[in-house]
Computed example of a mutant assay.
Amino acid sequence: MAIKHLRTAFSSQYQPGQPARLQSGEALQEPGGDYEGLHKQMKRLFNSKPGKKYGRFSEDIGESPFSSWLKDYLEDKQGFTSFTDRLFNQWQELLTNCQEEFVGQLMVVHEALADSDVVYLMILESDGALRFDGNQALDTTDVLSTSRLNLAMRVELDDWLGDNAAENYLTLVHARGTGEPGELFIRLCGFTNQIDVEKETLTFLDAVEAFAKSSEPEKAGEVRTRAYEFCKEQHALGEPVAIEALSGYLDEDEPGRFKEFASKSAEMPESGVLHPDHRKVKKLVRIAGSGGGMSVSFSSDLVNQAIYYDRDKDALTITRLPKALREQLERYLENRED
């Protein structure tokens, strides 16, 4: 990983209706050191964030000119400083009209990877911390939060401007509870959603489940497990699921078998890429449910081995109880008898 350019700007809006405050830092080229460490941690948060959205730039450049400014910078029509000056000024204008309070650091990073370049826009938040001042009096100070990331976007530059341009090259983190500032961030980025993650999750689950059922009974569980593992690994990398790569992972001897099966049994996108929600994909390997004061979760491999379901009686029989659960039950019953 190598940062080509990085710049931050502190922005705040404490009194809606009044001009927002913005203070920008210097544009840094190949800053290295602590900046690389900070960016690595924020990328880790970005990749692990559930519920990401995928899309492309809005065609309304007048409303969201970020894409045109970014393109000018990449084509050397303006420098990184001029590019980020424009971006920061627009962010200040958007916050000035915001009716909710806001405070945060807007960080722009142009990163060079081994095989491509990416650009990140991130809103960094702060945590309060205690310290002793010069007079040994207890005081509070703000420090950057390295455990929260609620607003961020990544631009895959090659997928956007490369010879084989992709339909969707933006990945957005837009957490719940970000309110109006979150909507303004999306407007700043010019993001428009083109991916129905819920639909693609169902497509993924249906294709894997059908493929598992078509496999030999003793291998069905392995198919589900490997599909979940692959999806989980891609999520950790912040990458979608490529059907061709998944097909090779599921069957190394016949790497094209799942891809061919899925194309016939499910409605696969032309891109050959799916963006399933890894939290829901967990249904492939775990069965869970809660309600009425009860919460149950277990590996799907245990069905008809250690866990048996009687449809007629709507009853679940569990054998080979976990040791900790058995001990809790024994203590509880002993106390009740006493």
Rank of each mutant, 00 (worst) to 15 (best):
P19I: 03
P19C: 02
R21Q: 12
Q23N: 14
Q23T: 14
E26G: 07
L28G: 07
Q29I: 12
E30R: 14
E30A: 14
P31H: 08
P31Y: 09
G32T: 08
G33R: 13
G33V: 08
G33F: 11
D34Q: 15
D34K: 15
G37A: 14
G37F: 04
G37W: 08
G37E: 14
H39E: 12
H39W: 14
K40G: 13
M42N: 10
L45V: 09
F46W: 10
N47E: 13
S48A: 15
K49C: 15
G51R: 10
K52Q: 15
R56P: 05
P65C: 03
P65V: 07
S67K: 11
S67T: 08
S68M: 09
W69M: 06
K71E: 13
K71Y: 06
D72W: 01
L74S: 01
E75W: 05
D76E: 14
Q78A: 12
Q78H: 08
G79K: 06
G79I: 05
G79N: 14
F80V: 04
F80Q: 06
T81V: 06
T81I: 05
F83T: 06
T84M: 08
D85K: 07
L87W: 00
Q90Y: 02
W91Q: 08
E93P: 00
L94F: 12
L95E: 02
L95I: 03
T96C: 02
T96D: 05
C98L: 05
C98P: 02
C98M: 07
C98N: 07
Q99A: 12
Q99H: 11
G104F: 00
L106Q: 01
L106D: 02
L106G: 03
M107L: 13
M107S: 12
V108F: 04
A112W: 04
L113D: 00
A114D: 11
A114F: 05
D115K: 11
S116L: 05
D117C: 04
V119Q: 02
Y120G: 05
Y120R: 06
L121K: 03
E125F: 01
S126P: 02
G128Q: 12
G128E: 12
A129P: 00
L130P: 05
R131H: 10
F132V: 11
F132D: 01
D133F: 01
D133S: 00
D133Y: 01
D133I: 03
G134P: 02
N135G: 07
Q136W: 03
Q136K: 06
A137E: 14
L138W: 04
L138S: 02
L138V: 11
D139G: 03
D139L: 00
T140M: 10
T140N: 10
T141S: 11
D142V: 10
L144T: 10
S145P: 03
T146S: 04
S147M: 05
S147H: 09
S147D: 12
R148C: 00
